[in-house]
Computed example of a mutant assay.
Amino acid sequence: MPPRTSRRKAQSLASATVAPRVAQKAGLLPRIKGPKTGPFRHPDFDTSSDFHFEELLDEPSSSSSEGGEGYVFKAVLSGRTYAVKFKFYDIEEGRYRFSNSQNEKISDAELIGNLDPFNAECRAYGCIEEIRAKYREKGIEIGPIAMPCHGYMSITPSHEREFVDRFGPLEFQRCAKDEGTELRALVKRYSPHKHIDPKKRPVKLMLRDLEIMHENGLYPIDIHAENYREGLLVDFGMALTEPSCVLNVVDDYVADQERGRGLGAFDDMIKDAGIKTKIRAANGPGWRNRTRAGTIAKDRAEFIQLVNRRGLRTEKQSRM
């Protein structure tokens, strides 16, 4: 495996250019039951236009405090600035989170469609659009409840090679079966603001956004300050969205804990940020256990670890 280029090296290679294309016969993704996201569209965007990557904003890291779950670049498309996120998924690492009996209940398509961070974000943003549409039907405009996503796009292997030549050997976390497949990316609104500032977006509104998502079957889990910009959540790579094959195979009390984990993490985040407020997401003693540290639910000789940030094999799984 080639060594990963350093953040500094990638940042110094400014204005790298490749020619992207929206996937042929592009449709809504993922191709499983539930919310979906469509391809990136822009009135001034031509598939043969230049794609300028200007800066590496984030890269994968084994520590949540050091980096994110994918490569995020500041990019300029047709004169507009976006954040473009690349990520692959290893299904074997996903399977490792579950016991044998649980794995038997989940097909490969369902697992990838739910737990692949790219697909998890497509489902989450599709759900967000459904939420906004539901409120508009009632004549209510709730405004953004997350940092907007403008859709997905793909880069062909030939264009990816050109990209790597300019930026260095970036490790996109492909597993062997994904070699040669197109690089997928989500195109999001770019924001340079990294810190939570209650003067720009009150904590009350941030919590309202999270509660609206929960009320509509979208459960963000990876809640911490690094995943917010302008008081809006930007990362849904670990989110669970109904209908969820994950929530369907675990015991009811575990599913309930997973649904509520983000709310407990929200309280922790606000406290850690030193923001003084009486606003709390916690609604009872059970919420205090729903933190970003993760929960391991054990049932006899089986367990499931849903919130291992990197899908790494940090614990030995017992098998029946």
Rank of each mutant, 00 (worst) to 15 (best):
Q102I: 07
K25C: 12
P243A: 11
F163L: 14
S244Q: 09
G94A: 15
F51H: 06
K271F: 12
S63M: 12
E242V: 06
G126W: 01
E121N: 08
Q11C: 12
K74R: 11
S101G: 03
E171F: 09
N227E: 14
P39V: 01
S244F: 04
V307P: 00
P20K: 00
S191G: 12
T156R: 04
A26G: 15
L183D: 02
D178R: 07
L186Y: 01
R123W: 02
K74C: 04
N103L: 13
I91C: 05
E215K: 07
A293C: 06
D90P: 00
K36E: 05
V234E: 04
T156G: 00
T81E: 09
L263R: 00
N114L: 09
L247D: 02
S191P: 07
P60S: 15
L186A: 05
A225E: 15
Q173Y: 10
R21L: 13
K199S: 13
K87E: 09
D116Y: 06
L312V: 09
R208L: 07
E121L: 12
M320K: 15
Y125H: 08
E66A: 12
G126M: 01
P192F: 11
A14H: 05
E104N: 03
P192A: 13
A239D: 02
N119H: 15
D44L: 15
S107R: 04
L232I: 12
A83H: 01
E110C: 04
S64P: 00
R313I: 11
V22S: 13
A14C: 05
Q317G: 11
V18G: 01
M1P: 01
I221R: 04
S15V: 01
I140G: 10
L57S: 03
Q102N: 06
Q24K: 10
I221E: 03
H224D: 08
G70I: 11
I279M: 06
M320E: 15
R80G: 09
S61G: 05
M213P: 02
T291H: 10
R166L: 14
Q317W: 15
G34F: 08
V254N: 06
K138Y: 07
A225R: 12
D197P: 02
V203D: 01
I131W: 00
C127V: 07
Y135D: 03
D272P: 05
K134W: 06
G67W: 03
D235L: 03
I296V: 14
N227R: 08
R208W: 06
Q305K: 13
D178F: 07
G38N: 00
E242C: 06
N103D: 06
G311W: 02
Y82P: 00
P117Q: 03
E141T: 14
E59T: 15
T314N: 10
C127E: 02
R280L: 10
V187E: 04
G139F: 14
